[in-house]
Write a protein that binds this DNA or RNA. Structure first.
Length: 124
DNA sequence: TCCCTGACCGGCT
DNA sequence: CAGCCGGCCAGGG
């Protein structure tokens, strides 16, 4: 088999991203760059986005809980963004007038995240 | 095989 | 605060 670290979950980047998305609790969010980082590919935020691109409407994963580093919804297709925002609001996520939410309180990090330099993320 | 694009990101102007 | 730029990796023509 390939030289792959054990205990890190699925081997492929895509599978690891999906595994992370599946663990995001309701009312919390993760960013594309964060997913890429935790999936072992720092800087590959675009790839994370590309993975999720194929999911929309084809999965039961909480794809709506993934937003960009600005705290905004990144969908380029008209209508999809509205759906995503609606789903998130239904979970208790608040958006301001500029369509932005507070990552300081809503961004979620896995308990076993390698990087411990994580924001407080107080319970809401 | 080369070229281009893409649900992004951080830094700089 | 807004806009431009290079960098990342994968997939498609």
């Amino acid at each position: 088999m390939a030289a792959e670290p054990t205990g890190a979950g699925p081997a492929t980047f895509q599978a690891r991203v999906l595994a992370l998305v599946a663990r995001i609790p309701p009312g919390r969010v993760m960013t594309y760059g964060q997913l890429a980082l935790l999936a072992g590919a720092p800087g590959a935020a675009r790839q994370a986005g590309q993975v999720l691109n194929g999911l929309m409407g084809h999965t039961e994963l909480p794809w709506q809980r993934v937003i960009n580093a600005q705290g905004r919804i990144s969908t380029y297709k008209v209508g999809v963004g509205e759906v995503q925002e609606g789903l998130l609001r239904a979970e208790g996520v608040a958006f301001d007038d500029t369509g932005r939410c507070d990552l300081d309180t809503l961004q979620w990090w896995p308990e076993d995240a390698p990087d411990r330099a994580v924001p407080p993320a107080p319970l809401w």
